[in-house]
Computed example of a mutant assay.
Amino acid sequence: MTTLFGFYQTLGPALSVLVVFTFLLAGMVKGVIGLGLPTIAMGLLGLAMPPAQAAALLIVPSTLTNLWQLTAGGHLPPLLRRLWPMLAMIFVGTLVGSAGLGINSGAWAVHALGAALLAYSLYGLCGRGMCMPSTWEHVLGPLCGFCTGVVTAVTGVFVIPAVPYLQSLGLSRDELVQALGLSFTVSTLALALGLAGQDALSTEALGASLLVLAPALLGMLAGQWLRQRISAVLFKRCFFVGLALLGAHLLLNG
């Protein structure tokens, strides 16, 4: 129990409340639009703590919610056969990025986090759906995976360029949701190994991450309920506008 709560005793009550609120909100966003938990968590927590500390907190809720997402849909075997080069290079890129750069490498990591959030939000607001020829996949898939891994290692955010790439493959909605869950799961596990290699993933931090699983799941359930009652398009637009403002703040003032 000391291991579970020691992290929050170090943070203090105000930051502990911020952590709980962040994972409630992040889980709700994921429940509505199917992604956003690590992005929201890294963005909001990056305002108050080092990115490495924030990334350690998201390991358990991100892994379990993404496993939940990737197992629903029935498309896992064909997606694994199609996407394994990208997934393998996400893993390699994250470990290489962690060894060479790392999320724990100085104040500039906060600016990098802001840049990643801003780029993703601008893509979400302005990016048009692309369609990539299947003949390019054997080259662009591994390249995209490696770049995603390096960005993950430096910022804790694993949506750029993985999400635009997966959206360009012409997958059905169910296949895309499952492919995103698969990509995010690999990214989270690779990030955990990278953090452990930088001594940024202690037993205490894992215990703290386990505790925020409850608000993340509660937020997801609330988001799934909310999804039936609001415009998902409007919600997504508000999400990206808020994310752009947050990313710009971290980029300029981090």
Score class of each variant (00 low, 15 high):
164 P>F: 01
203 T>S: 14
192 A>Q: 04
226 L>C: 01
215 P>K: 08
176 L>S: 06
2 T>G: 15
51 P>A: 11
3 T>M: 14
54 A>H: 09
173 R>L: 13
224 Q>P: 05
199 D>V: 13
106 G>A: 06
143 L>P: 06
28 M>R: 09
233 V>Q: 13
93 G>P: 00
145 G>P: 02
150 V>D: 11
110 V>N: 10
7 F>D: 09
190 A>E: 07
39 T>I: 07
140 L>M: 14
88 A>W: 03
79 L>D: 03
243 L>H: 03
230 I>W: 01
35 L>E: 01
79 L>T: 04
65 T>R: 04
47 L>A: 12
29 V>I: 07
226 L>W: 02
229 R>F: 02
91 F>G: 03
170 G>I: 02
72 A>R: 15
70 L>E: 06
52 A>W: 14
219 G>L: 12
146 F>Y: 11
66 N>P: 11
50 P>Y: 12
58 L>W: 13
27 G>K: 01
202 S>T: 15
164 P>A: 00
224 Q>M: 04
10 T>L: 10
6 G>R: 10
152 T>W: 11
155 T>G: 07
98 S>W: 00
193 L>H: 13
215 P>Q: 10
116 A>M: 11
134 S>V: 15
53 Q>T: 15
183 S>L: 08
124 G>T: 06
231 S>I: 10
223 G>S: 06
211 L>R: 09
221 L>C: 14
116 A>D: 08
19 V>D: 13
92 V>H: 10
244 A>G: 02
234 L>Q: 09
51 P>E: 11
178 Q>Y: 05
100 G>C: 07
126 C>M: 15
142 P>F: 08
118 L>Q: 03
86 M>R: 02
55 A>Y: 04
32 V>T: 05
225 W>R: 13
111 H>L: 07
121 S>T: 01
25 L>M: 10
177 V>A: 13
63 T>C: 12
66 N>S: 07
144 C>K: 04
218 L>N: 08
83 L>W: 05
244 A>E: 01
127 G>Q: 04
35 L>W: 02
166 L>Y: 04
36 G>P: 01
36 G>V: 03
42 M>E: 03
21 F>P: 06
112 A>H: 04
89 M>Q: 05
149 G>V: 05
86 M>A: 02
252 L>V: 09
172 S>D: 05
107 A>T: 08
42 M>I: 02
96 V>K: 04
232 A>W: 10
218 L>V: 15
169 L>G: 01
22 T>V: 10
65 T>D: 06
100 G>Q: 02
120 Y>G: 00
46 G>D: 06
113 L>I: 06
21 F>R: 12
23 F>Q: 09
120 Y>H: 01
